[in-house]
């Protein structure tokens, strides 16, 4: 780990200001992903701003009937929250499908959104990786790519976003609430929050330097069946090869977000519109421009099969 200075932030504004004043600063909340990457010197902040003491660990009802989830709410607490279990089961399910009990006790809502890819070439600082070192090349395209993206990929990067929670947030139309270093706040719909790799795979979200996530807003509950299905190599404690999160209404309409297939939680409005037509129609649109490798071609089929099973289960 590279040496760093450390401060415990006293307020959101102070945290954002401190981050803006130092381009090498990072916020630390749970730290379960950041410290992992710092140990490998993939992340090399020179200053850490501990934001755990800012009181952002509350879940509150919003006036419109939705929920406001504090950025620092731990994954365990979010999954266990009664309103989430009752009205946003997809979110609860996605959370408990991820990581381990120990990690979920520490990992936060904002941190989960900002998880970085598990691509093995990203994780090995001795290998070319455009995400880690722009211009060095992508080792995964002709290398081990079984777990990589099949859609929204570029010649620069085929990494996936590893979060389960973000798939649910995407399907639930969550909004990310932030504060910028100048003290202004804004909200970013989750659909605009993540970026595709393009030729700048090192830029992963819409956040600006020093911009600080304070919470995530969920719109009022929509009802419907909430199902999250994760397909993985181990029965537990493994990243998704493919995961499917759906909300399906009695009339067969609904929304679907897919994990393990792209640089971001993958959802397309036109695909949602075909939910009543069944999995093949949805996936035909969802993965229309799929560009899999030899090793991960199976994911195309797997997404359709899994979605088909999930739709059947919802109707069941």
């Amino acid at each position: 780990m590279r040496p760093f200075t450390f401060e415990r932030a006293s307020s959101i504004e102070a945290a954002a200001k401190s981050a803006a004043s130092n381009s090498q600063a990072k916020f630390i909340a749970g730290g379960t992903n950041l410290l992992d990457l710092m140990k490998l010197e993939i992340e090399t902040p020179t200053h850490l701003i501990d934001v755990n003491g800012l009181g952002l660990d509350k879940i509150d009802a919003t006036p419109d009937g939705g929920l406001r989830i504090g950025a620092l709410v731990r994954n365990t607490d979010l999954a266990a929250h009664q309103a989430v279990r009752r009205d946003y089961g997809l979110l609860s399910r996605a959370l408990v499908a991820g990581a381990s009990g120990q990690l979920r006790n520490v990992a936060t809502t904002a941190g989960n959104l900002l998880q970085r890819t598990r691509c093995p070439y990203f994780y090995d600082t001795n290998m070319p990786c455009n995400k880690r070192q722009l211009g060095s090349g992508c080792s995964a395209i002709d290398g081990f790519s079984r777990q990589h993206a099949i859609v929204g990929v570029s010649d620069s990067c085929i990494a996936t976003h590893p979060s389960d929670m973000a798939i649910a947030m995407q399907a639930l139309d969550a909004t990310v609430e932030t504060v910028k270093p100048d003290g202004s706040s804004r909200t970013i719909p989750i659909a605009d929050f993540y970026r595709l790799p393009g030729d700048t795979p090192h830029i992963e979200s819409a956040l600006e330097r020093g911009e600080f996530i304070t919470g995530v807003l969920l719109p009022p509950p929509t009802g419907g069946k909430h199902i999250y299905r994760k397909v993985r190599d181990r029965a537990s404690y493994a990243f998704a090869l493919v995961s499917v999160g759906v909300v399906i209404h009695p009339d067969g309409t609904g929304r679907v977000a897919v994990g393990g297939v792209a640089h971001k939680p993958w959802r397309i409005g036109e695909a949602d519109a075909k939910m009543q037509e069944g999995a093949r129609a949805v996936v035909g649109t969802l993965l229309a421009n799929a560009r899999p490798t030899e090793q991960n071609r199976f994911k195309v089929d797997l997404v359709e099969r899994t979605l088909g099973a999930v739709i059947s289960e919802a109707r069941g």
Partner: peptide
């Protein structure tokens, strides 16, 4: 994480 050995659930 990437070399999978069986966990309890397996």
């Amino acid at each position: 994480s990437e070399y999978h050995v069986p966990v309890h659930m397996d």
